[in-house]
Amino acid sequence: MDSLLDIRNLSLVFDTFDGTYHAIDDVSLSLKPGEALGLVGETGCGKSVLTRAAFGLVPSPPARITQGSVKLDGMELLGLTDRALRQVRGRQVAMIFQDPMTYLNPVFKVGTQLVDAIRAQHGGAIDRKAAREIALDMLEKVHLPNPLRQFNSYPHELSGGMRQRILIAMALAARPKLLIADEPTTALDVTIQAQILDLMAELVDDMNLSMIMISHDLGVVAQVCSRVAVMYAGKIVEDAPIREIFETPVHPYTKGLLGALPHPFRPADDLESIPGNLPDLLDPPPGCRFAGRCTFRRPECDAPIPLAEIAPRHSVACVLRPGAVTPAVAATKDLNHA
């Protein structure tokens, strides 16, 4: 089956005062219709920038896309005019974001914002009344209690969970093909988090959505997604079905992330965390960007290493992967499995 979204060799830099910041480097990622992909990685690794840049939502300047292509249903998005991109955003691709507190405009009623968004999604082809019908219908769909009342309230009168439901309703009103959910539950407390995740899983099913769900948290991703891409410092280091990520992770960073996952039978202070910090992306190392923090570091790590398949649907960018074997690597691999 053809890809719904196909990002190829995308690189993006920020022109900053201190120099050129290589935020996204040669990233390829594709998504099939109906697939739910998790995008994980620690803070600042470029998850938000990657998914926003694909749809023209990163302000330029300072951002600059230096290479690559983004195709949605076969249509190239990079280089489209803002007007053409607006047709794509909202209507075909919907986004929901991390902090529901700040993503609604404080000085307009929720209803006004919903109606405006829905009219924009339809290219202005429907009137306010029809948009209002759709909005109320969507509020019902996201199980918001008392939709009519919330419709007439201002954002500050609602709780975080309610706001996130409203943002989800707004995003999905146009029945898009693709939903980008950028840490939709991070800012919510745990019970609400679970409710929102349930809701999302339900809607993805109901509306036959494809989804990219961004998170720091592999546990959250595992609840909703069938596949995971692990990102580190602007690059994708491993991309595999969720089961394989948990059972046979290859990249040391992925393993680190799994080690950092809280476990019900382990006290929280026992959490393993990966020592060290992100490399300086103003002057990134030419080879593996994780090498500086990697316990399996080898001389080969200093040369560029591309993402390559090691099994069907499982790709890794690491010298440790089977097939990228040198005698030295084979030795580490044994060590690693011991």
């Binding site: 749809f55 974001f97 993503y103 405009n105 307009f108």
Partner: peptide
């Protein structure tokens, strides 16, 4: 640069409405 402007853009709302209505009503305060 605020998040709600990003969200409005993500919904496909046009630049004129974003600037003259959504942003200005906040900036004018």
């Amino acid at each position: 640069g605020r998040d709600y402007v990003t969200n409005a853009r993500a919904q496909g709302i046009g630049p004129w409405r974003i600037i003259a209505v959504y942003s200005l009503k906040n900036a004018i305060l």
